[in-house]
């Protein structure tokens, strides 16, 4: 049984169809890359998976419709990282990451007495520490989030998402603000989450990273599925030119194929 799957997932908002009949299966152990030009419906798909936008069709978690899960069950199953790299109040990194433990302590007293519950259980503490270390923000844990660089903040937010310790990670452009080293580390981290038996759907604009790290890709355009499956078949020369309007270089290193976007199809240097 798939970890997470969709059947004919369709999202219409104010008469506009943002997603049109998407079928997707995410198996345990798989890192799925979600790619497509701006406005293709990538973020909408992620939000529909988390249950943030009303949808038709079905989203199933381990075979159960997510609409039948309780809020707590859903929050423990799916961990979501949004696109905005912002935290509203200047709280400290550690406090930010602790918020990820909320779904695990939704007991009566916690819900009523405050999310700042005094004694986070030992399990929560070690989960928070694991997340801080995994996202390489352990040393920043006492800093205020407004005093971090964009990249540091992105990693702190990723640590918050990891602290949920949910089987499925849904990340909307997790590497957009990062320098190359941290991009590679974050992608490796997501992949190791999957290798450990989890699953992840990651929105990416960087096709090179997508080809390097993802097990399968889903290419969206105008809310429709253009291609899905193995990296090589999705990132074909034909798809890249018809969807993105670009030409790319294809290479192979250490038995792995990679793609480097090279020129826009309309530009004059296409013969270069």
């Amino acid at each position: 049984m798939s970890l997470l799957s969709t059947e004919g997932l369709t999202v219409r908002i104010a008469g506009r169809t943002l997603l049109d009949g998407i079928d997707l299966d995410i198996d345990a152990g798989e890192l799925i890359g979600l790619i497509g030009p701006n406005g293709a419906g990538k973020s909408t798909l992620i939000k529909a998976l988390v249950g943030l936008v009303a949808h038709q069709g079905r989203v199933l978690y381990r075979g159960r419709p997510i609409t039948r899960l309780s809020r707590g069950e859903r929050a423990r199953a799916l961990s979501y990282l949004s696109q905005e790299n912002q935290v509203q109040w200047p709280i400290r990194v550690e406090e930010l990451v602790e918020l990820g433990r909320f779904p695990h302590r939704m007991g009566w007293s916690d819900r009523w007495m405050g999310g700042q519950a005094a004694s986070a259980a030992e399990a929560d503490r070690s989960a928070v520490e694991r997340a801080l270390r995994a996202a390489d923000v352990w040393d920043l844990r006492s800093r205020r989030v407004d005093r971090l660089s964009g990249g540091e903040r992105a990693r702190a937010r990723l640590a918050r998402v990891l602290a949920v310790e949910a089987p499925v990670l849904l990340a909307d452009e997790p590497v957009a603000a990062l320098d190359p080293r941290h991009q590679l580390e974050v992608m490796a981290l997501l992949r190791s989450h999957c290798r450990a038996g989890g699953g992840a759907v990651v929105v990416l604009h960087d096709l090179t990273l997508a080809s390097r790290f993802c097990d399968r890709l889903l290419l969206l355009h105008h809310g429709r599925r253009i291609a899905a499956g193995e990296v090589q078949s999705v990132l074909s020369m034909q798809n890249l030119s018809s969807v993105y309007g670009i030409e790319a270089l294809f290479g192979r290193h250490d038995g792995q194929d990679y793609v480097v976007p090279w020129t826009s199809a309309s530009s004059g240097e296409r013969k270069a």
Binding site: R74, Y80, S82
Partner: peptide, 13 residues
């Protein structure tokens, strides 16, 4: 939790 923005807060329950 709303410090995270409405989407992420909602995803946490």
């Amino acid at each position: 939790l709303l410090s995270l923005g409405e989407g992420e807060a909602s995803s946490l329950g």
